[in-house]
Design a protein around this nucleic acid. Sequence first.
DNA 1: CGCTGGATTGACTCGGATCAAGTCGAGTGG
DNA 2: CCACTCGACTTGATCCGAGTCAATCCAGCG
Lengths: 241, 241
Amino acid sequence: MANRFIQKLNGFVRLSDTEVSVLTSVTETPEHCAPKRDLMREGDRPGPVFVILEGWACRYKVLPNGARQILAYLMPGDACDLDIGLLEEMDHSIQTITPAVVATIDRTAMDGIMDQHPGVARAMYVGQLIDEATLHAWITSMGRRTSIERVAHLMCELYLRARNVGLTSEPRLALPLSQAMLADSLGMTPVHLNRVLRELRASGAMTLQRGSLTIEEPERLVRIAGFDENYLHRRLRRRAS
Amino acid sequence: MANRFIQKLNGFVRLSDTEVSVLTSVTETPEHCAPKRDLMREGDRPGPVFVILEGWACRYKVLPNGARQILAYLMPGDACDLDIGLLEEMDHSIQTITPAVVATIDRTAMDGIMDQHPGVARAMYVGQLIDEATLHAWITSMGRRTSIERVAHLMCELYLRARNVGLTSEPRLALPLSQAMLADSLGMTPVHLNRVLRELRASGAMTLQRGSLTIEEPERLVRIAGFDENYLHRRLRRRAS
DNA sequence: CGCTGGATTGACTCGGATCAAGTCGAGTGG
DNA sequence: CCACTCGACTTGATCCGAGTCAATCCAGCG
């Protein structure tokens, strides 16, 4: 019965029953959000911690010339960073992509929980580290991977992350991201992205159509992407206790 | 007499005298490192926390095809992430660029310090958040900025960060980074980077020659880069206490 | 004084952007 | 139930920024 946020944290660090129930109570009354709604905007003073329980969202920046760069995708179970409370202003915005269910946790309440429940704190930090590793992977993609490798790599990332929170129905995943968004996250144009998707389809590795990603040949896709899944989960250290 | 690491943290959050002395004692016996020496390698199990006291280093990844992507530059005062102890393996390597002086802090000792001295913990987290904002800026550069904007943006970042730790001698900064490294951080080839640097020189904004960066016209450089310095320091929230 | 590794320049090529038409599918209203 | 509309996806033609390959050039140094 635990929501995806708790499931995810529990996958990082085994949580005690009290920890689970504290987290449950604090995410019990989530809010329903329309798609394309900004949860926080660049320049805002950071408010409460958001946790996505259902639906998708993204972090993004907009440049003066109007170009958009997507910095990360948030899927069910993901939270926005905890420590941003230390900063004066957000350096990027966060927006829902689909209709979403998001829980709002008061920042001081969250601080209190993390103080009293080291397991929660540790799990949150692990999540943060994985996010950071993902940023590293994105930089590497944009800097040193060809466009087909880049696209394949992102698909691997999203598929695996989704699978970790039980969002896939085996070789398939509902991926509600328009080609324009994907292009804005990969630093390419929608036109070119479209052609790359066609190429991937032709290769037999995967198909992305009508909001549905199907991995036909995982090995081939991984090989194209040069994907090393370790950064998403294998590197997790399981503590003895 | 405080070293650059302490100076930097103290700039984020005012540290108490005890906090300063604890940090001093723990960075008192640093090690001298040769250039191009790996401090940690991708796949390693994270060891102690490193703090760069003098010299430069970088985080980087190498792809199977041999391409290298630099993920961040570390300058005096910078530390490698603290929480990586939670992960099983490093997702990237860290290497010195110049001869460097680096302090090594035992991980459990560091944890203890952060437990007992909330000011230190907060300052470290602020540092981490700024690093993360920098990763966001890099992604944005690679995805949606032209090459001249990208180069100008990186120069602005490095100059400002260096100035924050007192490394500049006003319009000038000793920048010991080869064009090949810079290219590997910006996702371009050395040849093209060289041409872009020539263009920037011609524009009168800045000159990078023989390891020395001179900002001739800051406003022009900032304008070319579309640089918003807020992400590096203005967004810092000063706590009342 | 010649060696060496970085920086610089030129000639050529190509991946991906741009511009411009379509096409397709889901939702809407008659 | 069908015509209309609108947004998202596709495809083609063309152009340009940046990569590649290949010479130098140059400064520091043994």
